[in-house]
């Protein structure tokens, strides 16, 4: 209870200045701290799977992405329209506060006891053959959503690359990093990835029966893959590389093929053969992890940029 209130107070104390910050860089630093605290909120909500994801993506990958953007925009961020007037700001403020209050009131008015699918999930989890109920939902009961989300990530990579300048097409993704430095940074970038890969494999493996799984493992792998590039001791592969594109596509393709196998063998898309459900799920998850990791890393890097050759 006290811990909850402490976390809530800290999160609000960070979120407000993010919105009001004068410089983008300050706002991003605040935002990274906010992401870390959010992970605690998820632990307190008994959502350790989500806490893992939030720590990896919310605080880690997002932080790196946004810090990079803030640095590049430091010269003068693009301003779109004229800023709203004082009266307008006040009006929007009242409106947003009203929405927040209404939302809070409605949350207090949610039915008690809460309707839930926890029981049907546990009653049927044996057929999915995994111990972690969240994984059972992701890969079993709502497998279609997960499959399509994996496709969304592939689409996001296509969309990102579509934003490249024509002159840079086919080149390596991302902006040119400052030249390599020897010393602690380069050392870290050499030492950390092997450890990270082991941790990622562990998180993926336990994910079948305990909190963890492909998204979390993929986020860690992506971070470890990015490290040497960020430290300037290695360069990412050009986006025209065939293997890169094949790895990104492999996960969703494997998932879709598993789905059609269910159509043929079991009479329903994404139905797993009894006794082999866990084997199929883990096989698909391993391929998916590789695809998602590469996709996430490429999304952080951004499209190929023109200043690379300059």
């Amino acid at each position: 209870m006290i811990a909850d209130l402490l976390i809530v107070a800290a999160i609000v104390a960070l979120a407000l200045p993010v919105v009001l910050a004068r410089s983008a860089f300050t706002a991003v630093a605040l935002f990274v701290a906010y992401g870390l605290l959010l992970a605690f909120a998820w632990v307190r909500l008994d959502a350790v799977d989500v806490a893992l994801t939030e720590a990896a993506i919310g605080a880690g990958l997002s932080g790196v992405l946004l810090l990079g953007a803030a640095r590049r925009l430091a010269g003068g961020p693009p301003v779109e329209d004229a800023p709203p007037g004082k009266a307008q700001v006040a009006l929007i403020g009242v409106g947003c506060a009203g929405l927040a209050v209404a939302l809070g009131a409605v949350i207090l008015a949610l039915p008690d006891p809460a309707p839930s699918l926890a029981e049907p999930v546990m009653a049927n989890i044996a057929a999915i053959e995994v111990g972690n109920p969240v994984t059972a939902v992701l890969m079993g009961f709502r497998g279609l959503d997960t499959l399509l989300e994996a496709a969304v990530l592939v689409l996001a990579v296509v969309a990102l690359w579509a934003l490249a300048p024509d002159a840079a097409w086919g080149a390596a993704p991302g902006w040119r990093q400052p030249p390599a430095t020897d010393g602690p940074l380069a050392l870290l970038a050499r030492v950390l990835p092997p450890i990270g890969v082991v941790v990622a494999v562990h998180i993926l493996w336990v994910g079948a029966d305990a909190p963890g799984g492909k998204f979390q493992a993929a986020a860690i792998l992506a971070a470890m893959w990015l490290l040497p590039w960020m430290a300037g001791i290695a360069a990412p592969p050009p986006i025209s590389r065939a293997w890169l594109r094949i790895v990104i596509a492999a996960g969703p393709v494997a998932f879709i093929l598993a789905g059609f196998a269910g159509s043929v063998l079991q009479g329903a898309f994404l139905a797993y053969p009894p006794g082999y459900a866990k084997a199929v799920i883990i096989a698909v998850e391993v391929v998916l992890t590789a695809s998602i990791a590469v996709a996430l890393a490429l999304l952080v890097l951004g499209p190929p940029a023109e200043d690379r050759g300059a």
Binding site: L148, A151, V154, L155, V157, V158, A242, R245, I246, I248, A249, P252, V253, I256
Partner: peptide
């Protein structure tokens, strides 16, 4: 969807 994914490689 499959076509979209395969388009990349």
């Amino acid at each position: 969807v499959l076509g979209m994914v395969l388009a990349l490689p």
